[in-house]
Design a binder for these strands. Structure first.
Lengths: 122, 122
DNA sequence: GAGCAATGCTTGGTTTACTTAGCGAAGTGG
DNA sequence: CCACTTCGCTAAGTAAACCAAGCATTGCTC
């Protein structure tokens, strides 16, 4: 696939994923609509990748389909955390640490990366 | 606190978080605007909790502020904060990182603890 | 065949996210 | 005091998310 597949591809992937989850759960668009309080035409459009759903809608859909939001976003490519392969998690832990200020986070990251010989670009 | 505190509280909390991260990073609204490709008035409104930003904007802000997207989404109320409560595992990650030498591990830990104000009692 | 229910989809409009242009306060230097 | 800049913010408009009503097709049962 092209490196710059764009946001459109991600939207389509997200829609396809939601569609597969809904059909596997044997749910109709209107049933999912009732569970999520989202109109069925809009759900239809989301499944075809015509719109980028808001945080509120995304959360509602994930809950209704018994899927974690993380999984959904990862499947959609919106959450790109797959660089955790060669990373034992230290970078992720630092990035996700709410006790650190932005300054401290940058410094700590810089030190860590200098240790492990990583280039500063994520 | 009320269980149905509403989305407004969440929005304000998210805005306050972004604001604190931006100011601690010594960034102006226009600088953050350039890094995120989001207009500075809109960033201002987000910080004051007047709008619910989309996932795209949320992700851009997180990247620009060196905050993990997960943390940002958690603050936005999308993800339930499962791990990032008190100890996000930064210490554990450093301790278990095979790429660090013992010396480096000690240094990194010392820096981290000085940041979060932990006593070196260990 | 006619009727009917249920599915996904289109249409047209309302609400909200988001932008471009510009204002007022708070500096800084001439 | 007067430019000039830079900060956050307001105002007004555009683009996009989202909904209510209804159309088109499929699959019934009579």
């Amino acid at each position: 696939m092209a490196p710059d597949d764009g946001v459109a591809g991600q939207l389509e992937a997200l829609g396809a994923f939601i569609h597969s989850q809904r059909t596997q759960a044997q749910l109709t668009l209107r049933e999912l609509s009732e569970r999520t309080n989202v109109s069925n035409p809009y759900l239809s459009q989301i499944e075809r990748g015509l719109h980028e759903p808001s945080v509120r809608v995304l959360k509602a859909i994930a809950t209704a389909l018994n899927v974690s939001v993380e999984t959904m976003l990862t499947r959609a490519g919106l959450l790109a955390d797959d660089d955790a392969d060669d990373d034992p998690g230290t970078e992720a832990a630092i990035l996700g640490d709410p006790r650190l200020s932005a300054d401290q986070r940058s410094s700590l990251l810089a030190v860590y990366r200098s240790y492990v010989g990583e280039r500063p670009s994520a």
